[in-house]
Design a binder for these strands. Structure first.
Length: 272
DNA sequence: TAAGTATGTTAAG
DNA sequence: TTAACCTACTTAC
């Protein structure tokens, strides 16, 4: 489930298990064999996240840059580590813990300068305390692109994925097709603050929950949800089901090759 | 066994 | 705009 909250959680998980520890690194699958050999036996000093990018710092040996993409997964376990299967791109292990990486879009050893270049091309991340929405607002408020597309653009905001996009627009009642330049300043401020709060909860619980307590199924007299893709949500992957608030059928559409979900009544189309 | 799907990104046309 | 890439799971035949 790789949106930004997942990656920040993974950075935390690595710090807890490996920070300050000498780790063994290997690439059972083989595609990161050279990189793994270069950090094998070194101390993992840092684990950081920016948006959906994870950086594991090995001092002078550089950083392992990981991007999970759509299917990548990181799984943790305690000793004894089972034999790694042939899809494990990277295994990190100490006497106590191991972490197996499968299916990432990116797993490469990079330098400080290459890492900096990645930070430079990413927008502000609601989960980084030093970031704020100002830089994002400058781009959004000048853009004719739809706010739904802008939210997924990692140069505009880093870490937002398809679930948070759909949910945050619903929670503010914003039409996903509204052009960025037509978005009100206070709506953007509210969306940014909401993203920060929701994603922080996402890190804490390692899942995405967006439904306010008063709208939870129990409170609304509905049966609890049975979906398996995460937490409790309003619109994401609920196409053709009734809106939790107004019972209008949730709509879905293709936008830039991603599935978009929204309630046409709670998020009415902007005039013009 | 094959096809389809997924919370993503990049490069080619 | 399309295809390509990476894995695992579910559904169809």
């Amino acid at each position: 489930m790789p949106e930004g909250h997942t990656i920040h959680r993974l950075a935390l998980d690595h710090r807890e298990r490996f920070a300050g520890e000498t780790v063994r690194a290997s690439s059972p699958q083989g595609r990161f064999a050279a990189g793994a050999a270069l950090v094998d036996g070194r101390v993992l000093e840092r684990a950081e996240a920016h948006g959906k990018h994870l950086f594991l710092g090995f001092g002078p040996a550089g950083w392992i840059h990981i991007h999970l993409g759509l299917f990548g997964k990181l799984g943790f376990g305690t000793a004894p580590a089972p034999p790694a299967t042939d899809t494990v791109r990277l295994r990190l292990a100490t006497g106590e813990h191991h972490a197996d990486l499968r299916g990432p879009t990116a797993c490469a050893l990079i330098t400080d300068a290459e890492k900096q270049a990645i930070h430079d091309r990413l927008g502000p991340d609601p989960l980084r305390p030093e970031d704020d929405g100002e830089r994002a607002w400058r781009r959004i408020s000048r853009s004719r692109t739809t706010v739904a597309a802008l939210l997924l653009d990692q140069k505009v905001v880093a870490g937002v994925g398809n679930v948070y996009r759909a949910e945050v627009l619903f929670r503010r009642g914003i039409d996903p097709y509204l052009p960025g330049k037509a978005l009100a300043r206070d709506d953007w401020d509210a969306i940014w603050a909401d993203l920060a709060a929701l994603m922080r909860e996402g890190v804490r619980h390692n899942r995405i929950d967006t439904v306010r307590p008063e709208h939870l199924p129990e409170a609304m007299g509905r049966p609890p949800r049975v979906d398996d893709h995460g937490g409790e949500v309003y619109v994401y992957r609920r196409a053709h089901q009734p809106c939790h608030l107004c019972a209008t059928e949730i709509r879905t559409a293709d936008l830039a090759a991603r599935n978009l979900f929204w309630c046409p009544r709670c998020q009415p189309a902007h005039a013009g």
